Simulated scan of single mutants.
Amino acid sequence: MAIKISGVQNLDVFQEEKEGKLREVGSQAVWSLSSCKPGFGVEQLRDDSNDTYWQSDGPQPHLINIQFRRKTTIHDVCLYGDYKADESYTPNRLSIRAGNHFNDLGEVEQVELSEPQGWVSIPLRDLEDKPLRTFMIQIAVLSNHQNGRDTHIRRIKVRSPVQDFTFGKLPNFTSWKCYQFSTIR
């Protein structure tokens, strides 16, 4: 069953990061694309600009592969779309797949976007309704608006919940190095 997301999205993806609830973990992964036009690849997809974008160049489905070095907890995947600027290049139907490697990917979520304008958050949950733990995520663009062939995606963020390692009234340390000195022996 597909999640339908329609209209203008007013999601502030940076709010939960500022509050310390979620953190962007995409920089810890290796990114690859099924195809791209020269100058419109991973670098443009991952930069901090809404004006640049990845543009596919080939038959559908268009794939974005995100591989982590270790099993990672994923809260959601956020995509920035701009239907007004991209029109037929805007993704309409997406499939989010997860697994340990390319050969065991299974669909976790299917999303139908209706003229997205701004950030769209796609929560990723396991069968027990907990954030998904995985080595690899694949985002497949199955179709575009107006039956477009190639696709534009302006930005992608992969977010993970911040782990709370505090016990009792100890401060909330953000690194393991600080946390290892938090108790007196």
Rank of each mutant, 00 (worst) to 15 (best):
I3V: 13
S6W: 09
G7S: 14
G7D: 14
G7R: 13
Q9A: 00
N10Y: 06
L11N: 05
D12L: 11
V13E: 04
E19D: 12
E19V: 02
E19H: 06
L22P: 03
V25M: 08
A29Q: 14
A29P: 10
V30D: 14
K37F: 04
F40D: 04
V42I: 15
E43P: 06
E43N: 07
Q44K: 15
L45A: 11
R46C: 07
D48V: 00
N50I: 06
N50R: 02
N50Q: 05
D51T: 03
Q55V: 05
Q60L: 13
L63H: 05
R69C: 15
K71Q: 14
T72S: 14
T72P: 10
H75L: 01
D76N: 11
V77H: 09
L79Y: 01
L79R: 00
Y80P: 07
Y80G: 02
G81D: 04
K84Y: 09
K84L: 13
K84P: 08
E87W: 02
E87L: 08
T90G: 08
N92C: 12
S95Y: 00
I96F: 09
I96Q: 05
N103K: 07
L105D: 05
G106L: 10
E107Y: 01
S114T: 08
S114H: 05
P116F: 05
P116W: 00
G118P: 03
G118N: 06
S121A: 15
L124P: 01
R125S: 15
E128T: 10
D129A: 15
F135S: 12
F135Y: 13
Q138S: 04
A140L: 08
V141N: 03
L142N: 02
S143Q: 08
Q146N: 14
G148I: 08
H152T: 04
I153D: 02
S160T: 11
S160M: 07
P161F: 04
K169Y: 07
P171M: 13
P171D: 08
P171H: 09
K177R: 07
K177L: 08
Q180P: 13
S182D: 07
